[in-house]
C-alpha cells in the first residue's frame, strides 16, 4: 500500500509471561534496541527485563497540574478583583479561601488531561497504521499471545539472524510483517 514504508518487523510468539520475560532479558543482552514485548495485559517486572527507564509522564502531569493551579488563581483573581469586583457581605475581593474548590478542580482537570494526552504523545499514538497490523499472528497480542517484535530499523537487524536467534530463545511461531 505504502511504497515508502519498507520497515519490516519480525514477530515471534512465546508460550507464557515467564518465557516472554526471559526472552526480553536475552534480547536486551544481545544488544537489540528496537524491540518490544507485546502482551494482552501489562506484565510486572517487564520494564527491568527490557531495560526500560521509568516513564517520564509524572513530570508532565506535575507541570500541568501546577499550570492549572496557577491559571485558576489568576483567573479568579482577575475576574473578582479587576474585571468584575462584586461586594458580597463586605468580604475582600480576593477571598482566596473561597477560591480553593475551583483551584483544586482546575488543577485536577489539567493534570488528568495531561496524563491522557501526555501518555498518547509518549506512546506516539494515535497511530492507526503500523506494519505489525498486517500480521495474523500479531492479532494474538490483544488476546492471549505473548509476542516479541524486532523492527528492521534496529542497527543489529538481519532478518535471518533475528529469526534464528528468536527460535533459539524458544519462540513457538515466527512471522515477518511489513
Amino acid at each position: 500500500m505504502n511504497v515508502q514504508n519498507k520497515m519490516k518487523v519480525v514477530i515471534a510468539e512465546f508460550d507464557s509471561t515467564a518465557e516472554l520475560m526471559r526472552a526480553a532479558e536475552k534480547i536486551r543482552e544481545a544488544g537489540y534496541t528496537k524491540f518490544d514485548c507485546h502482551s494482552p495485559f501489562p506484565i510486572h517486572g517487564m520494564d527491568s527485563a527490557m531495560g526500560l527507564k521509568r516513564s517520564g509522564l509524572g513530570y508532565i502531569v506535575g507541570f500541568f497540574a501546577f499550570t492549572g493551579l496557577t491559571a485558576a488563581i489568576i483567573l479568579q483573581w482577575w475576574a473578582s478583583v479587576v474585571a468584575y469586583p462584586l461586594v458580597i457581605s463586605g468580604k475582600p475581593f480576593f477571598s482566596y479561601q473561597a477560591y480553593l474548590p475551583v483551584t483544586f478542580s482546575l488543577a485536577v482537570l489539567f493534570a488528568a488531561a495531561a496524563a491522557i494526552f501526555g501518555m498518547l504523545v509518549l506512546n506516539k499514538l494515535p497511530r492507526l497504521n503500523h506494519p505489525v497490523f498486517s500480521s495474523e499472528l500479531f492479532k494474538k497480542a490483544t488476546d492471549d499471545g505473548f509476542l516479541v517484535t524486532i523492527e528492521s530499523d534496529d542497527p543489529k537487524f538481519d532478518e535471518s539472524e533475528v529469526k534464528k536467534y528468536l527460535l533459539s530463545l524458544g519462540a513457538k511461531r515466527i512471522e515477518v510483517a511489513g
Binding site: A24, D36, C37, H38, S39, P40, P42, I43, M46, D47, M50, L52, R54, S55, L57, G58, V61, A111, A115, I116, G118, M119, L120, L122, N123, L125, P126, R127, L128, N129, H130, V132, F138, A141, T142, T149
Partner: peptide, 19 residues
C-alpha cells in the same frame, strides 16, 4: 487509536492509569 500492547506502551499507560 492504534494500540499495540507493547511493553513500551504499557509502561506509559500504566503510569497514566496510576496518576
Amino acid at each position: 487509536i492504534g494500540w499495540r500492547g507493547g511493553n513500551r506502551q504499557w509502561k506509559h499507560y500504566e503510569l497514566a492509569y496510576l496518576l
